[in-house]
Simulated scan of single mutants.
Amino acid sequence: MDSSMEGTAGGGVDSEADPLPGGAAEAASTDTATAAGTAGERVAVPPASLSPSRAGDFMQCPLLYRFRVIDRLPERPSEAATRGTLVHAVLERLFDAPAAERTAPRAKALVPGQWDRLRESRPEVVELFADDPEGERLARWLGEAERLVERWFTLEDPTRLEPAERELFVEAELESGLRLRGIIDRVDVAPTGEVRIVDYKTGKAPRPEYAEGALFQMKFYALVVWRLKNVVPRRLQLVYLGSGDVLTYDPVLADLERVERKLLALWEAIRRATESGEWRPRPTKLCGWCDHQAHCPEFGGTPPPYPLPTRVTEEPSAGGPGVAPGRAQSLPVQADDGPSAGGPGVAPGEA
């Protein structure tokens, strides 16, 4: 579960997307810290770690990363993101029951209670249905969540599964000092010790040409597990409830080393942008889902004043000839050669 809620002030679910009621995971895995000022205000500090969600943000659009991680601009909840949160919560809770009782009717019966829990822990989601006094749209939305949960039983058999971990927060520090963190939906461990990392997606599976981009998040998690346990996961598995597909990949050490190099380059680009204050927008068709158009120069907006100090260096930038001293460049890092971490055409929040 890669969560787009991670590190945001109020946004929807990540790929990356933090679909945990109560926000405990969100608090534990935010990519940037905040300090309390004398009057209790939130004080921006430089990014200190990287998650799949935030890595995907920067690869999609450096300015979006800034808005979410540094400015922490609020984002409206969306029906798709909140549905992803709800479905994740149901699938997590189902494993509390004995194996024989993990049935589709029981899972569907969990939906109303988990929705109530979500509304209590994250009151902002209530506004999604504020204009639905008769509850008709809410009933349809809950029905869609139930159908996604029910479809899961056609893809996996929970009576034969005993997850070693659910909604597992992981964090590892690389030799470079970069901290990687995230939340894994499910970890299965075979009797032989082989590890499988599983992530649920409530959207549809990407087209084959974008599968590599979709696997970026899973390779990120595999890298963290390898660095923590010195074990390369045997299998990475993406379960797409929206289309009823299962995407699997068996990583090798070279995959994880390649992802680590990519993340180090990405973090260097983030560091330079943080120091210079230059966060360049990268327009794509995903801009249509962005909550921050009013602040984006591509839409005639003006970003808020940069809340961190900037540093102008005297030496020419590493960006090469023709780059003015002190003007950092964003590296055009792509997620495993895909246009974005989630693949094109994937609406944010379809976790």
Rank of each mutant, 00 (worst) to 15 (best):
D14T: 04
A89V: 00
T38G: 11
D31W: 08
P191Y: 02
V246T: 09
G193H: 14
R66L: 12
P251Y: 02
A17W: 01
P309Q: 09
A139T: 08
T34R: 15
G242A: 09
P321M: 12
L138P: 06
W289G: 08
R327C: 10
G113P: 07
E298G: 02
P281W: 01
A109W: 11
T284P: 00
G319W: 02
E124N: 13
F220R: 02
E92R: 00
R42T: 11
M59S: 11
R261D: 15
V43I: 15
M1S: 15
P297N: 09
W279Q: 01
T32Q: 04
D291M: 02
D116K: 15
P52I: 09
E144Y: 11
T310R: 14
A39F: 15
P46L: 07
D185I: 01
G320H: 05
G177P: 05
T30N: 05
V231Y: 02
D14Y: 06
E124Y: 09
G113E: 14
L331V: 01
V346Y: 02
N230K: 15
G277H: 04
D337T: 01
Q60E: 15
I197F: 04
A27F: 06
R235M: 04
L215I: 06
R119F: 03
L118A: 07
M5P: 02
E278L: 14
E26I: 11
R68D: 11
W115M: 06
R119D: 07
